[in-house]
Computed example of a mutant assay.
Amino acid sequence: MRTQQTRVPVSGGGSLWAERAGEGTPVVLLHGAGMDSRLWDMVFPALAGRHTVVRYDACGLGRSTPPTEPFRDVADLRAVLDHFGLDRAALVGMSLGGETALDFTVAHPDRVAALALVGSSVSGHTWPEAPDLVAYGAANRERDAGRLAELELSIWAPMGVAATGGELIATMIADNARRRVAGEHGAVHPDQDAVTLLGQVTAPTLVVHGDQDHPEIAAIAARLVAGIPGARGEVVPDADHYLPLRGPERLTDLLLAHLP
């Protein structure tokens, strides 16, 4: 598979690593917090067989540079689309990447042909004060990279390293832990929370999560399906939060059936 790798100047004063492959209607893949575009390794080639597919490392993660000033994930996504000359594209976002995709859809509805939210969060959602999530938030605020990586594995990848995709998941988390705590606190959040604007989303929307994901992700998925007009929900068996690596074949089938 021939790919084009490039760097995209963005709002945080640095640049994002990005990769493009395939021909057809465009699709952009967004990974979650503390990860990088390797999340899509098992999905990217199959999608590129039918689509122009772009994936990128978010600000400060993977092969992208750390921010030197405040940055906006939505503005960075727009910069990626503009760099590749994509006036309109389908967005596939996992976890925080899904939140960014949804925020972008609310802000720029004319640029989104379809939306797939995978184990997604949503801006404005109130998370419960569960002990695991409280500890996770504290480690993030205290910029404790080691503790944050440990909790990332136990909370969000409970199927373990021995399960499908486990070694890559552990490697991504370890590689990005220090980068994450160094850069994430510079993120500027959108002016409006998407959770209050779900009824305005007109893009065809697929909401997917794994049956082994954190219970709050299932609650968010139900909220998205109920709030976004015409949204369809799917649950993938034997997959935790890292669904693109835990259940890539099933996810790919769902995406190919949904994407224009």
Rank of each mutant, 00 (worst) to 15 (best):
V74K: 00
A89E: 02
H31Y: 07
W40L: 11
A113P: 08
H83L: 04
V106M: 00
E19N: 04
L39P: 03
F44R: 09
F44V: 07
E69T: 05
C59Y: 05
M159I: 10
P70A: 03
E99H: 03
V28G: 09
V112T: 13
A90T: 00
D103L: 00
T126P: 05
D144R: 15
G85W: 07
R147M: 13
D144C: 15
D73Y: 08
P45L: 12
R143Q: 11
G60A: 03
S95T: 01
L115I: 06
H31V: 06
T126C: 12
L96H: 09
T25Q: 12
Y136S: 12
V80W: 02
E19I: 06
N140K: 15
P45E: 08
S154T: 15
A113K: 06
R141C: 09
S154G: 11
S123F: 02
V27T: 07
G62E: 00
M35W: 09
D73G: 13
L86Q: 04
D82E: 08
L153A: 13
A90D: 01
A113S: 13
P66Y: 02
I155L: 14
A58F: 00
L61Y: 02
P158W: 07
T52A: 07
V74Q: 02
P67L: 04
D76T: 02
D73K: 05
A138F: 12
G146Q: 12
T100E: 03
A33F: 07
T100F: 03
G93P: 03
M35D: 09
L96W: 10
A33S: 11
T68Q: 10
W156P: 09
V80S: 02
W156D: 09
L81W: 01
R38Y: 06
G98F: 01
V112K: 06
H125V: 15
A113C: 13
E23S: 14
A90L: 00
H31G: 05
R78T: 01
P67C: 05
G97M: 04
V122L: 07
P131M: 13
V112M: 11
G160I: 07
E150V: 15
L77D: 00
D144S: 14
A157V: 11
H51T: 09
A138S: 13
T100H: 05
E152K: 15
A75P: 01
T105H: 02
S121H: 10
L77G: 01
T100D: 03
L153F: 09
M159G: 10
E69S: 08
V54W: 06
T65K: 00
L153Q: 12
M42P: 08
L30N: 07
E23G: 12
G34M: 06
R78Q: 05
L39H: 06
E150M: 15
R50L: 13
G60V: 04
D144L: 15
R63W: 00
A48Y: 04
H31C: 08
H125D: 10
D76Q: 03
A114K: 03
A135F: 13
S95M: 02
V54M: 05
Y56F: 14
H108M: 01
W127R: 14
V118T: 08
E69Q: 12
R88I: 07
D144T: 14
L133I: 15
R143P: 08
A18M: 07
M94V: 11
M42G: 08
A145D: 08
V118I: 15
L115V: 09
A135N: 10
M35I: 09
P26V: 11
